[in-house]
Amino acid sequence: MSRVPSPPPPAEMSSGPVAESWCYTQIKVVKFSYMWTINNFSFCREEMGEVIKSSTFSSGANDKLKWCLRVNPKGLDEESKDYLSLYLLLVSCPKSEVRAKFKFSILNAKGEETKAMESQRAYRFVQGKDWGFKKFIRRDFLLDEANGLLPDDKLTLFCEVSVVQDSVNISGQNTMNMVKVPECRLADELGGLWENSRFTDCCLCVAGQEFQAHKAILAARSPVFSAMFEHEMEESKKNRVEINDVEPEVFKEMMCFIYTGKAPNLDKMADDLLAAADKYALERLKVMCEDALCSNLSVENAAEILILADLHSADQLKTQAVDFINYHASDVLETSGWKSMVVSHPHLVAEAYRSLASAQCPFLGPPRKRLKQS
């Protein structure tokens, strides 16, 4: 649940008159999402009104509101027999009622949201009550392989729920002597030191190019640089560091992050930047690179990204790559990247197969709970 924001200063709310007192009302909304995959969808019983329910879910471990999704594969009634019906059901509720908006969509073979439908307002739910769409999607369109909505005969539904909580009022009075504290510009100011090479005390040599930097900042941000300058190493004695395995453009992006906490060109060089972040123990930059690479996972590059993640101990990226390969196994196994990995990294192939087997055979063990970014 997000923290209630402070109200904007009255002088910034309007260029008009300023009242002596004010009130700011925040209506709290808890948002969460749920993904439900139905394997072997074409084998569902086709009687009209037949119901399939998901397991229950909530916004978190401490949330007492429990929900589930309900599907009628062949419609709810005679009117909707040519459609799939989809509903959000409130299973248990400690209150007399709650209000919530919802959005349903289908994830296609690429994991993209399609055929989205959402409620136009927050509906009133009581325990045992459901709301949804009797005519969510035509069955003939859903079952047509050309539309790519049932890869490997799996129907994957994605649901986003927004639950309306209580409202909170914050009130106060205006004073004539309003003090406005300026925003912190530390990142910009440190970035200026790097860009202008002011007050530098060490030189970093990268592929024949020299960059002036500040030992204190490098040591504070990177345990690797800290070790170089702290001990009686040649880098500490000469205040000069030779860097041979990072390209200059990648190095500059890494230094921008060290000084400012930002990497504006990360998406263009996420793979190389991940390697640099791993070498210099820049954990936050490493996770930022993992996130960017996750966003660009595809059938063509899944094997290469899995190898990269394994090489640099990028655990979150590795998990996402394995899950992606499992979901698109029939396509990924035909790529040149996968065939190369079979020869060069057989242990990763074995890991992917083990994960695929456990996903398809849940009876082999208890269900695993899916539970950071600093």
Results as ranks from 00 to 15, higher is better:
149 L>Q: 02
188 D>L: 09
59 S>M: 01
161 V>H: 07
329 A>N: 05
101 K>S: 15
341 M>P: 00
337 G>W: 06
205 C>H: 13
117 M>N: 05
301 N>S: 03
135 K>S: 15
174 N>C: 02
16 G>Q: 14
193 L>H: 08
191 G>D: 12
275 A>C: 06
180 K>E: 08
67 W>H: 00
224 V>M: 10
28 K>D: 05
271 D>E: 03
352 A>W: 13
296 N>W: 13
126 V>P: 15
46 E>L: 08
361 C>T: 12
350 A>L: 05
18 V>H: 08
24 Y>M: 14
349 V>I: 11
14 S>E: 15
71 V>L: 13
80 S>K: 09
348 L>T: 05
117 M>T: 05
296 N>H: 13
193 L>C: 11
340 S>H: 11
35 M>Q: 07
37 T>M: 06
369 K>M: 03
252 K>I: 12
144 D>A: 04
102 F>V: 00
109 A>C: 09
243 I>R: 06
62 N>L: 02
107 L>G: 15
193 L>Y: 08
61 A>Q: 08
54 S>H: 00
55 S>W: 12
114 T>G: 11
297 L>P: 01
323 D>W: 08
337 G>H: 05
65 L>E: 06
194 W>I: 11
66 K>I: 04
173 Q>F: 03
49 G>L: 09
134 K>D: 14
325 I>M: 03
347 H>R: 08
84 L>P: 01
276 A>S: 04
69 L>T: 12
44 C>T: 14
159 C>A: 06
14 S>T: 10
279 K>T: 02
347 H>C: 09
206 V>H: 12
37 T>F: 05
337 G>Q: 06
153 D>L: 01
128 G>D: 09
143 L>R: 10
19 A>Y: 06
163 V>R: 14
42 S>K: 03
34 Y>L: 03
326 N>D: 03
11 A>V: 06
321 A>K: 01
329 A>G: 02
368 R>S: 15
188 D>Y: 08
340 S>V: 14
195 E>W: 07
137 I>P: 00
234 E>G: 10
220 A>L: 15
111 G>R: 09
106 I>N: 09
30 V>I: 08
84 L>C: 06
125 F>V: 00
219 A>R: 09
20 E>F: 08
267 D>R: 07
163 V>Y: 10
66 K>F: 06
85 S>C: 10
2 S>F: 13
361 C>I: 13
368 R>N: 15
159 C>S: 03
11 A>L: 07
161 V>T: 11
160 E>Q: 12
166 D>I: 09
170 I>L: 01
41 F>M: 08
370 R>G: 03
69 L>S: 05
278 D>F: 03
3 R>N: 02
315 D>H: 09
298 S>L: 02
173 Q>A: 04
100 A>D: 00
